[in-house]
Amino acid sequence: MKYTLAVLVENRPGVLTHISGLISRRAFNIESIAAGHSEEVDTTRITIDVEVDDELELEQVVHQLSKLVDVIKIVNLTRVDHIERELALIKVKASKVNRSDLVDIVEIFRAKIVDVNRETMVVELTGEASKIDALCEVLVDFGIIEIVRTGKIALSRGPIAAKEM
């Protein structure tokens, strides 16, 4: 089963080492991890997607992470109504011949072309991971040169912030 956790941590040097160290030491199966600033200057927000066998294993992940001194709060967003997004930048081959086909596909996916040159284009897409996977699958035919993805971020719907949950 897959769970999505919002982890609020102190914005301090060493925090990511502590978190990644714990994850690897306890052999937790992390599918995606994305960190960045939050609404508070001294807080970093990390979205972690974890694959576990059952709730007991999830409990272990949460309790072990909570023990880290730098971890302020962990919210399990899985069962909370929430929005998930990931950003991908994809560099594809784009010759004169197939450029218009590519533009069509980009439009269907509501993606954006953010860079163009004579041989390639860079496509930007925001969405759920499955949508990005689907676009990548289609783009394979054109020839993908490189992909970068941010990993999933998640935010609850409704007025309440994770720090207050």
Partner: peptide
Amino acid sequence: ICGITTPISKHNYL
């Protein structure tokens, strides 16, 4: 040392 002791300490500081 912080890197080395992360998995074997309750906390560490540089």
